[in-house]
Design a protein around this nucleic acid. Structure first.
Lengths: 248, 248
DNA sequence: ATTTCGATCTCGTTT
DNA sequence: AAACGAGGTCGAAAT
């Protein structure tokens, strides 16, 4: 699990000329290093959508897998980016450092034009990323399958991810009177969309089973919004409050 | 638009001791600077979900708005993060640098424990983030409102974002025979969810208008998946192919 | 490669 | 605050 070997030594270049920065970055890209570059830059993006960003101070990260990220001082999301699989490139254009990340299918291009580079740093990271995450929808499913009584007394799960023309049902089973039950799981508080989803599954199953006996729809989530509650009542569905984590 | 004033000078510390790194980072957090820290670290997160990540080489960014991002050498998304609004902190624990970002409501804590710090850098960015993005659902709406014939001959838009118990309808109008039309817009290829959404609106309007006259449902998007096509036919809805961008 | 859906979704807007 | 829906969503799993 734990990364072995020495921590890689970073290389840095403070306040470099465009030419120095370009050869430094080009070399790092060739080495498959991780590159960060902080400075004043303007940004253009053209691809699935298109955008322009006037000059400002930003932090640019180029990853060896072809990811590009441009961050400002605010927000969790990068202000511009390029997904993994891009080709990074770097040149001096009109005396300025220009970094580009390009991919095809779809055609997309991110162009970062620096008017000033404050710092460039490169790293050779050795990560083994084995993360364990709990509190997901999969955990909620495991909870119910381990103890079906959590849903209701007498419930018997028959299948998970059961396929229907409208998509796959989270848990498919029957109640103590033999009626078909469709269970839709959500890891957190849900709105009207989840009810619509449950409705699609119930209707699809009613068609598929072509019996007149009703198919029960049960929504499992920590809680529901008011509008979703109204829709549940309208469709004749039930709600069972349950969280993905056992401690609450 | 363009950022004025001098580009801020970054400060860096290569291969520092835990104590030196801690006071350097603490000072930067106090100054509301942007902090980046590259080194070998283990990570724990506890909040909406929970996760543990064994030791590895990662890039940590702390933003003055309370955002924390931990990146490995792969992937567009951070392997761990904390949203804006967190309180960043930093201490020396058992001879190691520990960075924490905490928030309340919901209670969340991200803990990064370094076994080795390769480089710490701080910046004081001055960004004005005025970005223009085109190719959105709003563009698609503008296209149709500017030229309703794009939807069909004789279509008259009456309202946008018209409210219903099931949510607000993108475009609400009537056709050349006076029938009510509900238009659902999607900026890209759509699946079954969009048909479910359209269905909710149509049903809600049929109830609200309590007339026996049908309400027509039209889905506008660049294209639809096979399953969505089947659902459209099943519900008696129509599809109009249209992109948000005029050039294609 | 495409489809489908969850996500610590994030982000903005509105109530 | 909560609710609601869009997103250059991303990412993974299934087909």
């Amino acid at each position: 699990m734990t990364a072995e070997g020495p921590t890689p030594t970073p290389r840095t270049l403070a306040d470099p000329s465009a030419t120095a920065a370009a050869s430094f970055v080009t070399d790092a890209i060739d080495r498959d290093a991780l590159v960060t570059c902080f400075g004043r830059c303007a940004i253009e993006y053209e691809g699935r959508a298109a955008s322009k960003l006037a000059s400002g101070d930003r932090h640019v990260m180029l990853k060896p897998d072809g990811t590009a990220l441009v961050h400002t001082d605010e927000g969790q999301k990068p202000v511009n980016w390029q997904p993994p699989g891009c080709e990074h490139g770097c040149r001096v254009d009109d005396g300025s450092l220009v970094i580009e990340s390009v991919r095809t299918s779809p055609d997309e291009r991110l162009t970062v034009s620096f008017s000033n580079v404050a710092l460039v740093a490169t790293f050779d990271p050795a990560d083994d990323k084995s993360i364990e995450l709990v509190g997901t929808e999969a955990d909620l499913k495991r909870r119910i399958l381990a103890d079906p009584e959590l849903l209701e007394a007498g419930f018997t799960p028959l299948a998970t991810e059961r396929n229907t023309p409208a998509g796959s049902v989270d848990i498919y089973g029957e109640d103590d009177e033999g009626r078909t039950v469709v269970v839709e799981l959500k890891r957190r508080r849900v709105g009207p969309n989840a009810v619509g989803q449950l409705n699609r599954y119930v209707e699809a199953l009613e068609r598929e089973l072509h019996v007149d006996a009703e198919v029960r729809g049960i929504l499992v989530a920590p809680s529901v919004t008011e509008r979703a509650t109204a829709l549940l009542a309208e469709e004749g569905f039930e709600f069972v409050p349950l969280t993905p984590r056992e401690d609450d």
